[in-house]
Amino acid sequence: MPERSGRRGRLAAAGAFSLALIALVVAMPAFRPGLHQLFPELREPIYARASFVTLTIAHLQLVAIATGFAAAAGIAIGIAVTREAGRAFAPLARTVGTIGQTFPPVAVLALAVPLLGYGSAPTLAALSIYAALPVLEATLSGLGAVPADARDAAKGLGFSAWTMLWVIELPLAWPLMLTGLRNATIINVGTATIGSSVGALSLGSPILEGLSASNPAFVIEGAVVVALLAITIDRWFDVLEDMTPVI
């Protein structure tokens, strides 16, 4: 997809990847004969503990819920520390955002296990907390980049603090915030995959089971679907960013 292919090209790419993903997930059982030929030594060439439809939906749920929490927390904290009453917290919030992002996401997931046990809970918590950091950073830089002229003009027009935030600041900060959300979502798709190592159901489940049971077919199935899912989500963000007016 060349950079200048325009809106229609982006939309077409996102749509094509979505269709390919849906087709692959739904038609996975049809690949059985082919995989049997590729890996004749395997008794079961298709992951059967859960269907790929279930796995994909579970994966998407994890990512959606965690990214939702992360977005709410990151944006709320970002807004709170840029208001007059919360300004004292801004330097600390910025430092936490920067230092926190040097932590590898796997390590954050590992730290959540002793506190929350096994299953979806530690994965959701780790995903939500970790993904909040890029959103927070993006919100802070987005709100920080709002020109002082725009604020002064709004004040001159008699805008209240809330109206100013809603009508002036957030729309101007939105392009940067969207980039932060995109990073957060892509990181979450990856970390949710590793989340199956602590017992969360996701597209990582066939990969990890394939690795531990020496079943390369399971690994390939999970890896191809999750890679396609990540690319599809990324393409939709591309469409969304393209539709965001640059003011």
């Binding site: 997809m1 590793i194 690994v219 390939i220 990540a230």
Partner: peptide, 22 residues
């Protein structure tokens, strides 16, 4: 080159490892 490399970036690490094994 840029679009191929940026697509690679979005693929989860464990999936990329897995795709290289076979």
């Amino acid at each position: 080159i840029y679009s191929v490399l940026s697509l690679l970036q979005t693929i989860p690490s464990i999936a990329l490892f897995g795709l290289l094994i076979a």
